[in-house]
Amino acid sequence: MWTIFMALILGALLGWSNKLPGIFYKYTDKITMVGLMVLLFSMGISIGNNDQILKHLNSLGIKALAIATFSIIGSVLVIWFLQRKIFRGGEN
């Protein structure tokens, strides 16, 4: 948790300082993508390695998917409302 903050702050300070060589910025996109794929691959292994989760995937999966879907719909709608009512000035 704290190391995450520190990584972000350290990156932000380095970016802010403009002291990194220009060529470095060309690779930040690729670094981001590779880091993400490693993360998702590791998450997949955690799921595949857990028999309990695989066994319950069908029976509980539908309920889980329903909550996830409606959580996303609800939160998008509320933020959409906020964007129209409050954040109009900051929007593009």
Partner: peptide, 19 residues
């Protein structure tokens, strides 16, 4: 590995934000 990947990820996002 996840922790390292996450830190690397946030480090590069941080660079973008700082710039």
């Amino acid at each position: 590995i996840s922790t390292l990947a996450l830190n690397l990820l946030l480090f590069s996002v941080g660079i973008e934000l700082g710039r």
